[in-house]
C-alpha cells in the first residue's frame, strides 16, 4: 500500500514481513503457515495499538492521505442517478466544488462538496480543492434549486481553505462566503453537512451551516489550518503539530465540545483502507439524519439551525460565575 504514514510504521513493518513470508511459501513450497498466523495475530495487536491512540497530528496526516476518498468517491457509492451540474451562471465553473442532483435510497437529494484531486494533474484542474467565489456561488445556486424543488441538501466538506488569490479577492471571496452563510441560515429544506477530510476555516464553513454537522473520525475542522495557526501564534509554521494538539480540531475533540452532532467512525487506519466500508458508515449516519430532519416543517428546520448556532460560544458575565457554553 502506498502512502504509509510515519506513525503506522510498526504495523507496516509487520505487514511487509507477512507478505514476504507468504511469497516465500509460494515460491519454495515450504509450509510456514504457523509462523504467518503468529505474525498476523501480532499485527492485529499492533494495529490496535497504533490506530487506537492516534494523536491529533496523526489524524491530520490521515485526513491528508493522498488516497483518502474524495467527495466524488463517496458520491459514487452513496447515491444513484447522480448528475453533475456546473457553473454559477455569473462567471464560470469552479471545479474545486462539485455538485448535482441524485437519489439517496431512492429519494431525490442535492449533493455538493469540495473536490480535490488525487494526482498533480487533477489537483491543478481542481485548484487543490480550494474554491474561488464562483465555486461558492455554484453551491448556493444548487442549494436554492434544491429549496425550490423541496429536496434535502447534503454537503461534503474537504478543503484546505478558500483560495487566497488575487482573482478570488477581485470577484468577492468574502461576499461569496458571507452570502452562503446567511442563505444557508434561511434554507427551508434539510441540510446535512459531513466533514470528510480537511475543514479549514471560512472556506469549509461556506457550505457547512447545516442542521446536522457530522465528522469522519480522522477529519479535522478548524478556524485555521494547523500550519496557519502555528505561524500566527508562534511565528513558526513548523509547530503545526503543537497547534493541532492545542486547537482542538479533531472529531473526538469537537464531538466532546458539542460543536458537531456525530463522529462517524472510520475504518481502522483510515477511510482509504476500505472505501466501501467507510461509505457504509456514512450512509448509516446520513440516513438517520435525513429521517430525523424530514419530520420537520420548513419553519422548524430554519428555527432548528438558528437554535443550533445561537448556542455556540463560551463567555460569562461580571458578577456571575456561571459560564454559558
Amino acid at each position: 500500500m502506498v502512502g504509509e504514514l510515519e506513525f503506522e510504521r510498526p504495523a507496516k513493518e509487520l505487514r511487509d514481513k507477512i507478505a514476504e513470508l507468504k511469497s516465500f511459501m509460494d515460491e519454495k513450497g515450504i509450509d510456514l503457515s504457523d509462523e504467518v498466523e503468529r505474525l498476523e495475530e501480532r499485527l492485529a495487536k499492533v494495529e490496535k495499538e497504533v490506530y487506537g491512540k492516534m494523536t491529533p497530528w496523526d489524524r491530520v496526516q490521515v485526513a491528508r492521505h493522498p488516497e483518502r476518498p474524495t467527495t466524488l468517491d463517496y458520491i459514487s457509492m452513496l447515491f444513484t442517478d447522480f448528475l453533475e451540474l456546473h457553473g454559477d451562471r455569473l462567471y464560470g465553473d469552479d471545479e474545486a466544488i462539485v455538485g448535482g442532483i441524485a437519489k439517496f435510497h431512492g429519494k431525490p437529494v442535492t449533493v455538493i462538496g469540495h473536490q480535490r484531486g488525487k494526482d498533480t494533474k487533477e489537483n491543478l484542474r481542481r485548484n487543490f480543492g480550494m474554491p474561488h467565489p464562483e465555486g461558492y456561488r455554484k453551491a448556493l445556486r444548487l442549494m436554492k434549486q434544491a429549496e425550490k424543488f423541496n429536496r434535502p441538501v447534503v454537503c461534503l466538506l474537504d478543503t484546505k481553505g478558500a483560495y487566497p488569490g488575487m482573482s478570488a479577492e477581485e470577484r468577492g471571496q468574502s461576499e461569496a462566503i458571507a452570502r452562503n452563510l446567511v442563505e444557508m441560515a434561511g434554507l427551508t429544506v434539510p441540510l446535512v453537512c459531513i466533514i470528510i477530510g480537511e475543514g479549514a476555516s471560512g472556506g469549509a464553513l461556506a457550505i457547512g451551516v447545516g442542521n446536522h454537522v457530522h465528522m469522519l473520525e480522522n477529519s479535522w475542522y478548524s478556524v485555521i489550518s494547523p500550519e496557519g495557526a502555528a505561524a500566527l501564534l508562534w511565528k513558526d509554521s513548523g509547530q503545526a503539530k503543537r497547534a493541532a494538539d492545542t486547537m482542538k480540531i479533531t472529531a473526538p475533540d469537537l464531538n466532546e465540545m458539542g460543536i458537531i452532532d456525530k463522529m462517524i467512525p472510520e475504518v481502522e487506519g483510515g477511510a482509504h483502507r476500505d472505501v466501501k466500508k467507510q461509505a457504509e458508515y456514512i450512509e448509516e449516519a446520513l440516513q438517520k439524519s435525513l429521517d430525523e430532519l424530514s419530520e420537520m416543517s420548513e419553519e422548524e428546520l430554519v428555527a432548528h439551525r438558528y437554535e443550533k448556532y445561537k448556542k455556540i460560544g463560551q463567555y460569562t458575565f461580571e458578577n456571575d460565575s456561571i459560564g454559558v457554553k
Binding site: 452563510l181 478548524s222 469537537l254 445561537k310 455556540i312 463560551q314
Partner: peptide, 26 residues
C-alpha cells in the same frame, strides 16, 4: 478576523451572527 485563541468557537461566531442576521432580514 476570527480570534485564533478561541479556535473553532471563533469560526462558529460567523455562523451565529449569520443566523441572527437572517431573522432580521426575514
Amino acid at each position: 478576523g476570527a480570534r485564533m485563541q478561541e479556535g473553532i468557537l471563533s469560526l462558529m461566531q460567523m455562523a451565529k451572527t449569520s443566523v441572527a442576521l437572517r431573522r432580521h432580514h426575514e
